[in-house]
Design a protein around this nucleic acid. Structure first.
Lengths: 228, 228
DNA sequence: TATCCATATATTGTCGACAATCTTTGCCTA
DNA sequence: TAGGCAAAGATTGTCGACAATATATGGATA
């Protein structure tokens, strides 16, 4: 089960969290090699600690290892991001379905309150979601599914990768304006305990995000080609 | 990307595979503690190798670790298995959808051939699938999705857990008779390149398996209660 | 000059020892 | 007798050194 707050106890825990942050935020370039000796110097810990941290990064799918060769940060690509969104569509769709069944009334009320504060933000001129707000919304529904397998896969193996893509492709936060309306509809379906509809709307929501991302990335690519 | 055949190169690789086998098959009891020193004696490798193996078992969700306390084999429960099947429904449903789009004609032909050999088995009196046959069918569709994220999550994080449940609850192989017909329909939908239908049928197929499992487990539980 | 092979170098894999933490045992006190 | 505290024991976490493997260098040969 996912713990909620990630509390670092051992030295390996802290190094893992730090390394993950540095990778997600691009401080360590995507595709670059992770030298154990070098990292152990930079992060002032033994190679054993670095190795443990790298192992955990591998299970997040943030790095890839080859025996006797070493570890590299995964290289990002448009196709990779699209694949990730397909997995998200499947898993978060199921999460929404289960949330409609398993969230208790208090949690649903909290979700509605969250939406209200988001509405305030949208009304106040910022006509887009903050990254944090969007994440919070999705997190609550994932946790609301009460399915610990689903939760741990999404939290441990998917979301940090998504954040990495978002940060490094320079598109933090979801697309503008429309996302809020979609969130509202999803919460409405959950409030009505309509599991079927909740899943369908969540899947469409993520599919729209995917398509909008793809368009954006293709446009940027064209721009770069023209510039050359 | 999932490699297909799991080639063990280092000592840690071999120990990991051996440990995973022993856990899945129940040689190491579910819920039992994994003592590093003890394991390093039994498997004749250093503690460092054992620790690496345990780390990998953790990313398969086969063991759970607590800092400064140690690792335990996950304990199995009916609820856990049901959760797992919900995740499977979501992911393999998506896999079937993508397979209908991305499998090339040769692969689909092979899938039809596989089904034909299964039909022979069913006709020849064994009116149920062998475990291996069922797994082979699902593997091909998963690989046919061509989505490397999806593939690695299902192969690395889900399937060994499912096998563990199946083996230890004494229900290897899928439920009888009906499964084959469902497989046939799914392949038909993929052959017709009907992604929508392929997903729907795969989801229903897994949902039926789940329900049949639940019934079976509840019955067994009642038997035990009566016996006492 | 290009290719191949052998040596040298650097990196990862494995090991045993020590340090830090948790658990157990047994004594003391209320 | 029950509860809590302290020391002893056992287990995990961390470290530096050595072994095995991969990569880079450089010279010999066609």
């Amino acid at each position: 089960m996912w713990s909620g707050s990630e509390l670092a106890i051992t030295s390996a825990d802290k190094t893992f969290l730090q390394l993950r942050k540095d990778i997600v935020e691009g401080l360590i370039a995507s595709g670059s090699k992770l030298s154990e000796t070098e990292l152990s110097k930079n992060y002032a810990v033994s190679r054993a600690v670095i190795r443990e941290a790298i192992n955990r990064l591998e299970s997040c799918h943030l790095v890839e290892r080859k025996a006797n060769v070493g570890a590299r940060v995964v290289s990002i690509s448009t196709e990779g991001l699209m694949e990730l969104y397909q997995v998200r569509e499947a898993l978060e769709g199921m999460a929404a379905r289960l949330a409609a069944i398993h969230m208790d009334d208090d949690e649903i009320e909290d979700l509605n309150k969250l939406l209200a504060t988001h509405f305030q933000i949208v009304k106040d001129g910022e006509n887009y979601y903050q990254e944090a707000g969007d994440l919070d919304f999705h997190y609550r529904i994932i946790l609301g599914s009460k399915n610990s397998q689903l939760i741990s896969i999404l939290m441990d193996s998917i979301y940090h990768l998504i954040r990495m893509y978002r940060v490094q492709l320079g598109m933090s936060g979801p697309r503008v304006t429309t996302a809020f309306e979609e969130h509202k509809q999803i919460v409405q379906a959950i409030s009505n305990r309509d599991a079927e509809l909740a899943e369908m709307l969540m899947r469409r929501h993520i599919l729209y995000s995917k398509n909008s991302l793809q368009l954006k990335l293709n446009n940027e690519l064209e721009m770069k080609i023209k510039a050359v």
